[in-house]
């Protein structure tokens, strides 16, 4: 159900979406940002403001980008470099600040 930020965000990381999200569920990595699937309310406010059209609903992610559906989830469920616990559902990116690291997929992404 949630929205997903896919590959076009990498190294752009414009963050216009973060200004729109009413539940503050978009978290900033190093090369891109990530939508917390547990916190996203599926409102779609982020989608039209993305300058590189990186955001879509999970069931509409372009075929060559579907890997990012799971990857957005992993950002919150896996332990990221430099942390000792997964981010989980912290209840807002303003509480967490810039996470500043990426998932291995994004870290190694060559585009």
């Amino acid at each position: 159900m949630p929205y997903v930020i896919a590959g076009p965000c990498i190294d752009v990381n414009d963050k216009a979406c973060m200004d729109e999200c009413p539940v503050d569920c978009i978290y900033e990595g190093e090369r891109k940002s990530y939508i917390n699937p547990k916190e996203c309310i599926d409102c779609g406010a982020c989608e039209p403001v993305c300058p590189v059209e990186a955001i879509t609903q999970d069931r509409r992610v372009p075929e060559d980008m579907t890997v990012f559906i799971e990857d957005n989830r992993s950002f919150f469920l896996e332990v990221l470099p430099g942390r000792d616990a997964p981010l989980g559902a912290p209840g807002g990116s303003r509480k967490v600040g810039v996470v500043g690291v990426d998932t291995p997929l994004v870290d190694d992404w060559e585009g």
Partner: peptide
């Protein structure tokens, strides 16, 4: 714009799921 948050309701003693 607005930000929405459960806010003070979290302190009402209700059983929450995923906070």
């Amino acid at each position: 714009g607005f930000l929405a948050d459960l806010g003070p309701m979290r302190e009402w003693g209700l059983e929450l799921h995923d906070n």
